[in-house]
């Protein structure tokens, strides 16, 4: 028996919003420790990795590990049926071929349940080693979304350069070029408004703006986004999901041909 209850169904809605641009379907791996998801986008350029810890749920029970392959379009339709203030419970029997979503209004006067068919998806898990990154940048998530949106008007690629002074985002194309420099914040009253850089060595990498824009669909999950970069390895874009977990996007760089 698997059962996970979340008082804020809006978290689940936001998680889905954050992944459905990149993935059509995904396997939710449920175990005693929580719910994990790892999947590559169709073109195998990026990887989404999400973790929701069991202790972050209001009630969590998972007697046996269960992998639930879900069509994210169908899941979106179902979660649209939940009000933001509803309490959501996901339930499945062991070896079930369906999952049930139960939505309860805060006053318990309306209770709805939606059963969704599960899918058998090929499991392709990539092993991601623990990595010390040369540069780790934290900045307001809304600022990062704005930068990605603004620069994607110029070109298909965004160059991210990180030095100890700050971080620079650049793009160039037919209409011209654009550079956005963010300096490290000197005085930080509010952490969520700060730009911070932890740098071992400067890094400059080029990425496809289309994917960066897709990652920013997670902006509503967190005030802060963390970018981790090292020479010649994928960028990691991480958003915390409240006190319950995180979503990380890994993006392969564009390389000299």
């Amino acid at each position: 028996m698997f059962e996970a209850r979340l008082v804020q169904s809006s978290i689940l809605k936001k998680v889905l919003e954050a992944i459905k641009d990149l993935l059509n379907e995904a396997t939710f791996d449920c175990s005693d420790s929580g719910i994990q998801l790892q999947a590559m986008d169709n073109s195998h350029v990026s990887l989404v990795s999400m973790n929701l810890r069991s202790d972050g749920f209001d009630k969590y029970r998972c007697d046996r590990n269960i992998s639930m392959g879900m069509n994210l379009g169908s899941m979106t339709k179902i979660l649209k049926c939940a009000a933001n203030e509803d309490v959501v419970t996901m339930k499945a029997q062991d070896n079930a071929d369906t999952v049930t979503f139960v939505f309860e209004s805060p006053n318990q006067e309306k209770v709805s349940d939606y059963e969704m068919k599960l899918m058998n998806l090929d499991q392709e898990h990539l092993g991601i080693p623990e990595t010390e990154y040369a540069c780790v940048v934290r900045l307001p998530a809304g600022e990062f979304a704005r930068i990605c949106r603004d620069l994607s008007q110029f070109g298909e690629s965004v160059v991210i350069s990180c030095t100890k002074e700050g971080v620079k985002f650049s793009s160039a194309g037919d209409i011209g070029s654009a550079n956005i420099k963010l300096a490290q914040t000197s005085n930080v009253d509010k952490e969520e408004l700060a730009v911070t850089v932890e740098m071992q060595e400067p890094v400059t990498l080029t990425f496809a703006s289309r994917y960066l824009n897709s990652f920013t669909k997670a902006t509503s999950l967190s005030n802060v986004v963390q970018l981790s970069m090292s020479p010649d390895v994928p960028l990691v874009v991480e958003y915390r999901i409240g006190e319950i977990g995180h979503i990380r996007y890994y993006l392969a760089p564009k390389i000299e041909d």
Binding site: M40, S43, H44, V45, S46, L47, E124, H125, L126, G127, I128, P129, S157, T206, A208, V233, P234, Y250, L251, A252, P253, K254, I255, E256, D257
Partner: peptide, 14 residues
């Protein structure tokens, strides 16, 4: 010209 690398070039199947 820069070519788009694939994520599987960096991480391998578990």
């Amino acid at each position: 010209f820069r070519a788009q690398a694939a994520i599987v070039n960096y991480y391998h199947m578990d």
